[in-house]
Simulated scan of single mutants.
Amino acid sequence: MNDATPIPTTTAKDWASDQEVRWCPGCGDYAVLKAVQRTMPDLGVAREKTVFISGIGCSSRFPYYMSTYGFHTIHGRAPAFATGVKLANPELDVWIITGDGDALSIGGNHTMHVIRRNLDTQILLFNNEIYGLTKGQYSPTSRIGTRSPSTPFGSVDRPVNPCMFALGSGARFIARGIDVHKNLPDVLKAAHAHKGASFVEIYQNCIVYNDDVFAAFTQKQNAPHAQLWLQAGEKLLFDGGAKGLALDTEALALKVVAGDDPAVIAHNPKNRGMAAMLIEMQQSEGFPVALGVIYEDPRPTFESAVIEQNAKAAEGKAPDLQKLVSKGQTWQVLKEPRAE
């Protein structure tokens, strides 16, 4: 298919493979899968130009369930495979599916580099704050006090904040969503529209090993006052508009004020300092959880820089494989005639 060929109209069913979906009943991964399958027809992309790449973990079964190209790869190394795929064929639409353990433990190094390089890919990090596939050990995002087979007395580790990790790694697009929330497709569309590495943390419930760990802001009765869905240019209001966020200029920090307070500020996704404040807001301190697009400030992508560099290096040169192979210290073994 070339660029002039129109992309066929598809439905969510067209993006679903014929494989039996095998996650625990009630797992949040089902909701994320359906959200992605519903979103793909709206993106204007072709299935044969779409690739889903995963590492190891519950979420990493994802490529089997998408009717696209895909790779189920090595623990933590999905970014390396994605980089190779994108450099080999920049026209492909590449998605990385990973979990909090896969991306931030063994894969922390690879996640950092794919973000700082700004490879044009969508990184969906399913965060359930636990290792589900290997039966409930604590993960890099598990909270202090988490009891698990590997921390029977409670974890004493300070958890990683995935979005802050991404911001510190140089991410130019950071967003958050919730597995079962109706707004997740909008977050996915925004991530896809961004040119560069789009980092999306998805709060995903593990019904077996960490059930309701996010209930304080995901349950219906808690959502209004505990969730802040961000929209560029709109005021930072939550709790039905009764509360808002303002900047405490003395402390250089956010503070909760009444919704009608003129000091309530509007969301500017290009403000990196404000993004850090929104990411680090703690419910325990009376703040809501920031959701939606937190930060977006595009810059040139990694693959575009590589393509440009290769083009300049090739200017005025004719391809000659034999000359390339013979370059440097080489020698040739000639077969001498056999003595009679």
Score class of each variant (00 low, 15 high):
Ala12Gly: 07
Trp15Gln: 00
Asp18Arg: 09
Arg22Thr: 11
Trp23Ile: 04
Cys24Gly: 03
Cys24Asn: 08
Tyr30His: 13
Lys34Ser: 10
Thr39Asp: 08
Pro41Glu: 06
Asp42Asn: 14
Glu48Thr: 13
Ile53Met: 13
Ser54Asp: 03
Ser54Lys: 00
Ser54Glu: 01
Gly55Pro: 01
Ser59Thr: 15
Thr68Pro: 13
Ile74Lys: 13
Arg77Val: 12
Thr83Val: 07
Val85Gln: 15
Lys86Tyr: 12
Leu87Asn: 10
Ile97Arg: 00
Ile97Met: 13
Thr98Met: 10
Gly99Tyr: 01
Asp102Arg: 08
Asn109Thr: 11
His110Arg: 05
Met112Arg: 14
Leu119Pro: 00
Leu119Glu: 10
Thr121Lys: 03
Leu125Phe: 01
Asn127Ala: 08
Glu129Asp: 09
Leu133Met: 14
Thr146Val: 06
Thr146Cys: 07
Arg147His: 04
Pro149Leu: 00
Pro149Tyr: 00
Phe153Trp: 07
Ser155Leu: 03
Asn161Phe: 00
Cys163His: 13
Phe165Leu: 06
Val187Phe: 00
Ala191Val: 05
His194Ala: 05
Lys195Phe: 08
Lys195Pro: 04
Ser198Phe: 10
Phe199Gln: 08
Val200Ser: 04
Tyr203Arg: 08
Gln204Tyr: 01
Cys206Leu: 05
Ile207Asn: 07
Val208Gln: 12
Asp211Phe: 06
Ala223Trp: 02
Ala223Gly: 01
Ala226Tyr: 03
Gln227Ala: 03
Leu228Thr: 02
Gln231Trp: 01
Gln231Lys: 15
Leu237Ala: 03
Ala242Pro: 02
Asp248Met: 05
Thr249Tyr: 06
Glu250His: 03
Ala253Gln: 12
Leu254Gly: 00
Leu254Thr: 01
Val264Phe: 02
Ile265Asn: 11
Ala266His: 06
Asn268Ser: 12
Lys270Tyr: 04
Lys270Glu: 14
Gly273Tyr: 08
Met277Trp: 11
Leu278Glu: 07
Gln282Ala: 13
Leu291Pro: 03
Ile294Asp: 11
Ile294Cys: 08
Ile294Arg: 12
Asp297Gln: 09
Phe302His: 13
Gln309Val: 07
Gln309Trp: 11
Asn310Gly: 05
Asn310Cys: 09
Ala311Trp: 06
Lys312Arg: 15
Lys312Cys: 06
Pro319Leu: 11
Asp320Lys: 04
Gly328Gln: 09
Gly328Arg: 06
Gln329Met: 11
